[in-house]
Design a protein around this nucleic acid. Structure first.
Length: 894
RNA sequence: GGGAGAUUAGCUCAGCUGGUUCAGAGCAUCUGCCUUACAAGCAGAGGGUCACUGGUUCGAACCCAGUAUCUCCCA
């Protein structure tokens, strides 16, 4: 036999992947004779390299797609990448920096040239890596979110939504990096734990006539806070008092009841501001009185909106104070802080200074302390779209797997805020808004159209393109990826094209829960808005891949294996199955190398099953000797097939894999092959081989979505295949009910239970697996012994099977079903141990009987429970009694 | 602070509509085997008060209430 003893994946994987591609199996096009099945890949960042999360996510997609393809659907998996504005721009900036080039010295166009160069060079790496995993994407359809066609889609949508009044400009608090002179996303902000100072400042209460008597009824320490008609306010940022527009207290705070509605005077500055009340203020933090500075704090900003307060912005872009501050103008915020503290102290307005633990937000890029800053941004209204997008999930038009995410989704959609879609970056789709010299603007697909609109709007026919200035900002990357399921089929440019009509809505989406809102929800919105149809039917949410200790995988921890190394070491099939063994939907996957080892071992097991059947010589003269085994495995296979399909329908991928795993390893290898395997170097009969090969082929089909490479390899080794006879496109087996299957399976289980009893005795008595034994059976079911005679002899290594009326002398016994079995073992019997074992079993059986009796004696049970349930209980009772009798006899025979 | 989910064997998880003594799977562990397909293997075995406390029910891992612990999301 020339087949290697262990399977070596490296030799076959590249070969088959190339063949599949050459054959065009992954390419899909509209085909009226077939049902469509489509999946769009969550486009990985162009900056990305394959990590464990991608491996899990794409393995799941590939399993779904390959199965669909085998089911005869026109399976289309659209791959592509995402331009990832922020990440990519940061990468390019860093790369330029290494070359000594500063972004600030470049024009927009120059910078973009560098960025495109970078994208061309590195942007496709991850897709190449996916091929190593076996991903059966339709590579002819590879898209990129910033390619011209998709950019066109983005701009069209922007213009359209703007014209529908869904897009507007508004004020928003951003993370401002005063050193870098740019806004940062939340992801670029690093929180640092620090000790900060809390300054207690005195705001003089402005006494008005109406107030005079009511005050000062609080407790002693409360009085302290307002003594001498001062309200003490605690703040960590005293330099911002010039931007104060109110002081807020909690309406339930007894200390300040009398001050609500009154006015206080800002220290040093002398401007009067109102005291307002809001539940937001926490009573125990600081002094319970909060200064409200809408321009420089997000929460204050919202408070300001709620209470209709003005906004005073006292900071310049570089973090220095502007004229609106009136004091310390031109000083840096930190210098101003030092100075104002000194001045407050001298004026006797600084009550005290406390230290407290706080979190300082700093810039990832410059290290500067982030300044929350109001800025003019573009927004997309969410309320209307969110409502519809919630509906389709609520009514299960789109199903989330697992369904627990529905709650999360609902919570978010009900509290959704308008979407800030502008970013102060260059890499991305530039916002198609054009400003006129008078500061007004028009929104248009291109400059030409913009000029036309601008002339109309201004009434000035002399306007020229050069008078218009396009918005400097680009759109949020999600503003292109939310169109992905439509734009990859060119559904915006050509809304009625054959591809989109055929493949949209897509079927399944596989992604991570973290982007359920950012991406999934918005795709649903876009789908409903532009196709009036949901973008997909099922959303499968994967977990996060963690290490064995439950920590996230990260570069800095160094706890993530390199996926390509893993594939090289364990084979793509081994890695794929390893990843799936322990990852129920929505649950995090605790990665352990043991998992891929298990996967690799499984491929090896399959390989050896194949090897075994290949080694058999056929003797055409031999009669069909394995009817029972063949019949049984046929029934088992069909039953499992139904179970497997059910798991797939419910998106239980791990369970589906485990089902096939056990079918192959336990039922096929450990049981079936052992039953039909001829003795060493003995030939096999043709009929058995034919069935066995057919079974193996069916198993290969079931395994193929999980382990595409090894199964394709064996498929071609098993037989000469015609041109397009690839497992990749073989028909997925349909479950076909086997007559009397339940009975067949139950009978074999009984026979196997007897085998287990024999093997157990071998183990206990230290007999080798091949030492010939005889079996004595005391049973009514002699038919079982006849039918399974060959199997019992082979698996039990028995030389004879005798039916007896009483236990033979000097034998070890066991009970199986309602019958007793004995293995005569001269001189090896430990009477005491035997007795103890039987007594134990008897005790258990009696307990069982008693519990059933008790149940049946309960009138309410008999009345209330379903009839068949009661009937089953009666049957149980009968079985138990038979067993007890058998055991009692055995005991007395000892 | 608000919300959601979880808690079952050493680990990761199943357990559908409450009904077999229902407590299960894989891995890990232990014992014995190099039995010519596979030691990346074979055959067996052990292991759990279903987080806790009450309640509903003829019957609860499952339903209800409370408690504890953990995770995630939002602020």
């Amino acid at each position: 036999m020339s087949i290697a003893k262990t399977y070596s994946p490296a030799d076959v994987e590249a070969k088959w992947y190339q063949r599949w591609q050459e054959k065009g199996f992954f390419h899909a096009k509209p085909n009226p004779r077939k049902p469509a099945y489509s999946v769009v890949i969550p486009p990985p960042n162009v900056t990305g390299v394959l990590h464990m999360g991608h491996m899990l996510n794409n393995t799941i997609q590939d399993v779904l797609v390959r199965r669909a393809r085998m089911q005869g659907k026109e399976a289309c998996w659209v791959p592509g990448t995402d331009h990832a504005s922020i990440a990519t721009e940061a990468k390019v900036v860093a790369l330029l920096q290494e070359k000594g080039i500063n972004k600030k010295d470049l024009t927009r166009e120059e910078f973009l040239t560098h960025a495109w160069d970078w994208k061309e060079k590195y942007g496709g790496i991850i897709l190449e890596q996916l091929k190593k995993l076996g991903a059966s994407c339709d590579w002819d359809r590879t898209r990129f979110t910033m390619e011209p066609e998709l950019t066109d889609a983005v701009l069209r949508v922007f213009v359209d939504l703007y014209r529908k009044g869904q897009i507007y400009r508004g004020i928003r608090m951003v993370n401002w990096d005063p050193k870098g002179g740019t806004a940062l996303s939340d992801e670029e902000v690093i929180p640092k734990d620090t000790m900060a100072k809390m300054y207690h400042l005195r705001y003089e209460v402005v006494i008005s006539e109406q107030l005079s008597v009511v005050s000062a009824q609080g407790e002693s320490d409360n009085q302290q806070l307002t003594t001498n008609n001062y309200l003490t306010v605690a703040t960590s940022r005293p330099e911002t008092i010039m931007a104060d527009v109110a002081v807020a207290v909690n309406p339930n705070d007894p200390r300040y009841q009398h001050l609500i509605g009154q006015r206080v005077r800002i220290p040093l500055l002398g401007r009067d501001i109102p005291v307002i009340s809001d539940e937001y203020v926490s009573i125990d933090f600081g002094t319970g009185a909060l200064k409200v500075t809408p321009a420089h704090d997000l929460n204050d900003y919202e408070l300001g909106l709620k209470h209709n307060l003005p906004v005073i912005d006292i900071l310049n872009n570089d973090g220095t104070l502007n004229e609106k501050a009136q004091l310390y103008v031109g000083q840096d915020r930190f210098a101003a802080r030092r100075n104002i503290v000194k001045d407050l102290e001298e004026a006797g307005l600084l009550d005290k200074v406390e230290e407290y633990a706080s979190v300082l937000q700093t810039s990832e890029r410059t290290g500067a302390v982030i300044e929350p800053r109001l800025s003019l941004q573009w927004f997309c209204k969410m309320d209307h779209m969110a409502k519809k997008a919630l509906e389709v999930v609520e009514n299960d038009e789109i199903k989330l797997h697992p369904p627990k995410f529905k709650n999360m989704y609902r919570a978010w959609m009900e509290n959704v805020r308008d979407w800030c879609i502008s970013r102060q970056l260059w890499w991305g789709q530039r916002i198609p808004a054009y400003y006129l010299p008078d500061g007004s603007f028009v929104v248009a697909l291109n400059e030409e159209e913009a000029l036309k609109l601008a002339r109309e709007q201004s009434g000035n026919q002399n306007l020229e393109a050069s008078d218009l200035r396009q918005d400097e900002d680009v759109l949020d990357t999600w503003f292109s990826s939310w169109l992905w399921p439509i734009s990859v089929f060119d559904g915006f440019k050509d809304p009625d094209n054959a591809d989109i009509n055929y493949f949209y809505p897509t079927d399944d989406l596989v992604t991570a829960p973290e982007i359920l809102f950012f991406w999934v929800a918005r795709m649903i919105m876009a789908g409903l808005e532009y196709r009036k149809e949901v973008p997909f039917r099922n959303v499968y949410l994967t977990g996060i891949v963690r290490d064995a200790q439950g920590r996230k995988m990260s570069k800095s921890l160094g706890n993530s294996p390199d996926p390509l190394d893993l594939i090289a070491q364990y084979g793509a099939d081994g890695v794929r199955t390893g990843m799936l063994f322990s990852s129920p939907a929505g649950n995090d996957l605790l990665y352990d190398v043991k998992l891929v080892e298990q996967g690799r071992n499984f491929t090896n097991k399959l390989w050896n099953a194949f090897r075994l059947t290949q080694g058999w010589e056929v003797d055409a003269a031999l009669p069909f000797a394995n009817g029972k085994a063949v019949e049984w495995f046929g029934a088992k296979l069909q039953a499992t097939l139904a179970e497997l399909d059910e798991h797939f329908e419910k998106f239980r991928m791990s369970d589906a894999l485990m089902t096939v795993y056990k079918l192959v390893w336990d039922d096929f290898c450990s049981v079936y092959l052992e039953m039909v395997k001829p003795a060493y170097q003995a030939p096999i009969d043709a009929e058995t081989l034919r069935h066995t090969t057919a079974y193996l082929e069916t198993l290969l089909k079931l395994l193929h979505p999980f382990m595409p490479f090894i199964t394709e390899e064996i498929w071609h080794e098993l037989a000469e295949r015609t041109d397009n006879d690839y497992l990749c496109v073989a028909a997925w087996p349909k479950p076909q009910p086997v007559a009397g299957a339940t009975e067949l399976l139950a009978r074999m289980d009984k026979a196997l239970d007897i085998v287990a009893g024999i093997r157990n005795i071998r183990n206990q008595k230290g007999l080798g697996p091949n030492k010939p034994l005889t079996l004595a059976a005391k049973t009514d079911d002699t038919q079982l012994l006849q039918d399974y005679d060959g199997i019992l002899r082979k698996l039990g290594a028995l030389t004879e099977i005798n039916v007896v009326d009483a236990a033979p002398a000097a034998a070890v016994g066991f009970v199986s079903g309602g019958a007793e079995f004995f293995v005569p073992l001269e001189g090896q019997i430990d009477l005491g141990a035997e007795k103890e074992r039987l007594s134990k079993e008897l005790e258990y059986a009696q307990g069982f009987r008693d519990s059933v009796l008790k149940k049946l004696a309960n009138e309410k049970f008999v009345q209330n429970a379903k009839a068949d349930l009661v009937e089953r209980e009666r049957q149980k009772l009968a079985d138990a009694e038979a067993k007890i009798t058998a055991l009692e006899q055995s005991l007395s025979a000892l």
